[in-house]
Write a protein that binds this DNA or RNA. Sequence first.
DNA 1: AACGTCACAGCAAGCGCTTTCTATGTACGG
DNA 2: CCGTACATAGAAAGCGCTTGCTGTGACGTT
Lengths: 348, 348
Amino acid sequence: MTVTLADVAARAQVSPATVSRVLNGNYPVAASTRERVLKAVDELDYVLNGPASALAAATSDLVGILVNDIADPFFGIMASAIQGEIGGPGGRAGGERLAVVCNTGGSPERELTYLTLLQRQRAAAVVLTGGAIEDAPHKAATDAKLRKLADAGTRVVLCGRPQAPETGAIALTFDNRGGGQELTEHLIGLGHRRLGYIAGPQERTTTRHRLEGHRAALAAHGIEEDPRWTVHGQYDRRSGYEATLELLRRDPSLTAVVAANDSVALGACAALRDSGRRIPDDVSVAGFDDLPFSIDVVPALTTVRLPLAEAGARAGRIAMGREEAPPGGIAVVRGELMVRGSVAGPRG
Amino acid sequence: MTVTLADVAARAQVSPATVSRVLNGNYPVAASTRERVLKAVDELDYVLNGPASALAAATSDLVGILVNDIADPFFGIMASAIQGEIGGPGGRAGGERLAVVCNTGGSPERELTYLTLLQRQRAAAVVLTGGAIEDAPHKAATDAKLRKLADAGTRVVLCGRPQAPETGAIALTFDNRGGGQELTEHLIGLGHRRLGYIAGPQERTTTRHRLEGHRAALAAHGIEEDPRWTVHGQYDRRSGYEATLELLRRDPSLTAVVAANDSVALGACAALRDSGRRIPDDVSVAGFDDLPFSIDVVPALTTVRLPLAEAGARAGRIAMGREEAPPGGIAVVRGELMVRGSVAGPRG
DNA sequence: AACGTCACAGCAAGCGCTTTCTATGTACGG
DNA sequence: CCGTACATAGAAAGCGCTTGCTGTGACGTT
């Protein structure tokens, strides 16, 4: 029913081996023969059987990209950049590879299962994006899996994720700590002394690092942090809205709210507005990531720009072996403070 | 080197056939035997070889999701919803399937190549999202490919894409035309008579349908459209910014700007603001899609909400054969007008 | 003129799994 | 006590492709 290599071979009056070689182009085939084969392929509308090919050659052209939340532009932008470099069809890469993005939804189990699925498919490479989970058993399981993937010849690259030593993975890590610190120091420099902080989910490395940066800035300026000033939530707008209301309830005298990311900051802005505060006149708001929309909200968001697309592209290139891995297998990607309208000095 | 079924069989002292049956669970195996096998699997850390399995069984667990731009939340949201239903790991579906999203970047060639790649992998299902390209040769090529996929047993679902008769694909189509019309009628109802329209790229069905709706509304109210009032661009913010400047240059007396989607509308708002106009006092702005950020910009965007997540989920279920296809293989998904602050009656 | 050298093409042995068909052991009815 | 039925396990034949090795003419060399 379906056309196979043998059918093409028969039609072109050559052996299956020759057809295979024409298709893979890694062995000399006379021009006239090649032409005949290609013609037969065309006439029969032949499509290579991927699994069979992968089995015989013991390699596949699948490249996995793991993201926490594909509906979040943070990941979408990285995934897009990675995929662009992986080649996929039309990319600059020669061989056509199937770059696939897998949505873990932030769940450790799904992450692990996706890795197994990719291992099963003998993926050529895997790129993991975004922060990792800090739960020890899960981290151990993930690391073991990454180690195994790497051992099996799959190139493993972490993009925006802390290094995982001993796994053989190459890491492009975001300097969340440094960015967080710089941002808060900017606020402190403007005179803010009572700063609320809306952190992300507890167990994520990104959450911890950004928060550490924030606290380092406070400490560096001798500001004693009030435990009421920190609220944890999800990395989304809704969470930012609620957390802000909570912060305001706990301490109505806050002059600034620092959010774990831009989406959260958006929620914070909405909450402040709904509670009758003006931004930045009454309360300053800062975000993190500098997603595209951040410049469009009014007032535009002061935030820390992360070069998502650049980092993704680089990760993609490394995954494809088209760029050398950074020395030590790790490179730190810095953020850049974007000063905009949502932050001003405190009133009075 | 790598552990194979045979190794597991040897360790468990059974035949490879038995191991396969334990793993697939579709044939009676004595409990004691099963246990022994499972233990061996665990001890050897065995991972099934996907390609080999797919080859032998002539089926695969890959499901492809094609999107135009993964960095755009419009697609991210749909992809996320689809993937959620496909199951993937942790999903409600029983068998673990690898739901993979492929980023075509809106390029017809890439779309086609991805389809071939998926055909190669003998994908279990394919979901295509977003508008289609109207270029005739390309449409023919795509349709032929879809037809072939369907014939080969791959379930093909279109989500937010016009029906492709004769291809055997099931379509969940957005009522872009109706939504566009309703939106513009709302503006007309408020008294607007000079409305600029920022359309998307010429060759996309979505672009055409939304524009047709807009024009139908104008026609229905006897408003003769000035050709200067329509500008085409990309579906992004930047394009909206520039197109708005262009519209203003052509006719500074416009009282409203209707954008092809929310991102474009955002750009329009920025351009209006930068040129000293207030929204909606001087000029009203409307978008389309109702992406999450649309409620957060100031003023909040009047737009047409498309139930992206719901449609995606449904498409996913249909792709998995977990929900029946709509009668006739097509269902129209309507948008809902969201009236918010960015639109008001014209001044004076 | 005899003989390496090439440039190609074909043979055939798998790759690791699934599945049909067959064999074995056990339980049971007559 | 034997024949039949049932439950379970194994043997073996592929699935469609890749690739190392083996021809086989056509050339160029001495």
